[in-house]
């Protein structure tokens, strides 16, 4: 019994230590002003690999999720004779919730895991150590551009996801099931508020982008530099990012839309 309590306590202490280490790590990454001449090309390269290369999965997922929303929405709303409100339903669902959340989950699975594996491998092959010994700080040279790229790319990807989803919903609702096109766009325009819905959705994706990128780079930098260690860190990135996104989504939704 005592052993179990001790083990539980140790786990708690380990978690607190881990949070402390990741906080110090973040402070190290964000401290210091990057030089534009060297920092900007590195950031652009990472924006390409983290953002542009995630476009395909985001666009395809957004299209199908929008189409499914159109189909399900039509089935449910037509029971009440309200199928004209399908555009409003799809837009609000995507802009407020599914856009930021699903994009973040996709980001964690595609870009986050890749970031962790890349940094972990750089650690295992002593590339980070060699950089340190050359007088180059890997936190600023390797980690910072990746963190900022995730932070910048996520809201843009979430906006693209929502736009493609709304278009996919229109394909099913208007083109296939015959909802009047004017109702689809008109109801959407009347009910979606720029500040309350669009901006709040973007704020969510900014928060998710920061958290997902932070978890990914920290797990890579802190991993045990072996194949098993890198594999474990990659898994942790996806699991922790997904849980963090879903938990934070509840908190942010309560704050933004809870009307407390």
């Amino acid at each position: 019994m005592i052993d179990r309590i001790a083990s539980f306590g140790r786990s708690g202490v380990d978690i607190v230590i881990s949070f402390g280490r990741s906080g110090r790590f973040l402070a190290g990454v964000l401290s210091g002003v990057p030089r534009p001449a060297t920092g900007f090309p590195l950031l652009m390269k990472q924006l390409y690999s983290v953002g542009v290369l995630s476009l395909a999965i985001v666009v395809v997922s957004g299209l199908f999720i929008g189409m499914v929303l159109g189909l399900q929405g039509y089935t449910i709303l037509s029971d009440f004779g309200s199928e004209a409100a399908i555009g409003q339903m799809i837009a609000l669902t995507l802009v407020r919730e599914l856009g930021p959340v699903v994009t973040a989950l996709l980001f964690a699975g595609r870009a986050g895991s890749a970031l962790t594996a890349e940094i972990g491998l750089m650690k295992a092959t002593e590339q980070l150590s060699s950089m340190e010994m050359m007088g180059v700080d890997p936190l600023r040279r390797v980690i910072a551009p990746r963190l900022w790229a995730g932070f910048i790319a996520m809201p843009i990807l979430a906006i693209i996801f929502s736009m493609v989803g709304i278009w996919g919903g229109m394909l099913v609702g208007v083109e296939w099931l015959g909802v009047f096109e004017g109702s689809y766009w008109g109801n959407m325009q009347a009910s979606v508020d720029f500040w309350d819905d669009v901006v709040n959705g973007v704020i969510k994706s900014v928060v998710f982008g920061f958290v997902c990128a932070w978890i990914a780079v920290y797990q890579g930098y802190d991993c045990v530099p072996t194949s098993a260690g890198i594999s474990s860190a990659t898994t942790k990135t996806v699991v922790y990012s997904s849980l963090a996104v879903l938990g934070l989504d509840f908190v942010l939704t309560a704050v933004m839309f809870g009307n407390f």
Binding site: Q127, S129, M134
Partner: peptide, 30 residues
């Protein structure tokens, strides 16, 4: 550390850079 050089056991070359760029790296940075 700018006055130090270290040859790692694995070489620790940057895998995304060519041989030329690996050798040029410290000069470009410093």
């Amino acid at each position: 550390r700018e006055k130090m050089g270290m040859l790692f056991q694995s070489g620790a070359l940057f895998t995304d850079l060519s041989v030329f760029e690996n050798v040029a790296f410290p000069m470009r940075v410093h």
